[in-house]
Design a protein around this nucleic acid. Structure first.
Lengths: 197, 197
DNA sequence: ACCTGAACACCGTTCAAGT
DNA sequence: ACCTGAACACCGTTCAAGT
């Protein structure tokens, strides 16, 4: 799945172990947030603790790897649902709504998003992230062209809003849909935003 | 300062120690966030670790105690600056702006705010918090009466927005003023919001 | 009543030994 | 080249002994 043709050849068991670790991390993070103990992940994955550290030197690396597939899924949704099937001028609104739903379902994703914001600019890596950024820019362009979205909206703004939604979902209590509603009213001057399901 | 007339009499050294601990926690939390180690706080306060635990059984208790004065200061600002001297219809906007500035200056306050949201409803304690809530309701009432604020804005909304600002400030990178600007545009339909200093 | 800090428990991380 | 898990370091928390 991930890394179809890795630049450096790995031993077969190494690739397998890596996949097992990521799989275990994904389910555990999703269920109980990114604070799960590494020993537990190792146990579920069926490998030694040292192996986890060999593949993912820092905790953030593992979180990122576990989140990568979700990012890809989100990008997919953006390309298909938002760009193609969303009501005119409502592509970004639909996107933000979807991100909120994914964040609700996967408790570990918030940490990945926050971590991603910290490393912005320092390292150019993250091909998935780069592609996602392109789609977001496209959504903005479309809604702006439709005359619905405010003129000064940038990709950075979208990250800002996603971060806010993410934090609200993380801290329990406080419904993120209401927050998104207010923010969308700020983004779309015309007031045509209907978030109602 | 805090607890002018405590219900239960304490021994003199106990009260003194408590004050020392809170003072140490306040400066350390403000400088380096709420993740400072308890042993360090105890050392700076000049007391044993056990004493810290005696006064503040859980970490959240200490955070709350350290933040209480800030909450009182914020309430003061709301009563004086916002209610009295703010431009008509801009009381809440001024309030949110100020909260953001305080949060920027005191890195430990975010944790207190998040903790406060979690305990909402469970325990009625927090006289300071109750008074703050009253003022916020007043700010909302005023701006709404001036026809500037949207009709459905509640106190819970304000907590929601403060939480979002708090989280944005916490995760570095990503300017909270921009976020607040968008949210304010969502709150004030007329578009008269000038956050510019 | 209250303070103290050594002692305990726990978790993250490393690294020598093994395959 | 990679895996393993015992060993180390660290930090939060408790509690028996002291005042």
């Amino acid at each position: 799945m991930s890394r179809p043709a890795a630049p450096r050849r790995q031993r077969a068991d190494a690739t397998l172990n890596r996949a097992r670790i990521v799989a275990a991390a994904r389910t555990l993070f999703a269920e109980r947030g990114s604070a799960v103990q590494l020993p537990e992940i190792a146990r579920v994955a069926g490998v030694g603790i040292g192996t986890v550290y060999r593949h993912f030197p820092t905790h953030a690396d593992l979180i990122e790897a576990a989140a990568e597939q979700r990012f890809a899924e989100i990008e997919d949704f953006a390309r298909n649902e938002c760009v193609l099937h969303a009501e005119p001028g409502q592509a970004l609104a639909r996107y933000l709504n979807h991100v909120g739903e994914v964040l609700t379902a996967d408790r570990g994703l918030s940490a990945a998003i926050e971590a991603a914001r910290e490393s912005t600019g320092s390292e150019p890596r993250g091909e998935t992230r780069a592609r996602l950024e392109t789609v977001i820019a496209e959504l903005i362009e479309r809604d702006r062209a439709a005359g619905a979205l405010r003129d000064d909206c940038t990709v950075a703004d979208v990250y800002l809003l996603v971060g806010a939604i993410s934090a609200t979902i993380g801290n329990r209590s406080g419904d993120w849909r209401r927050l998104l509603g207010i923010m969308l009213d700020g983004l779309y001057p015309r007031g045509t935003t209907s978030t109602a399901p």
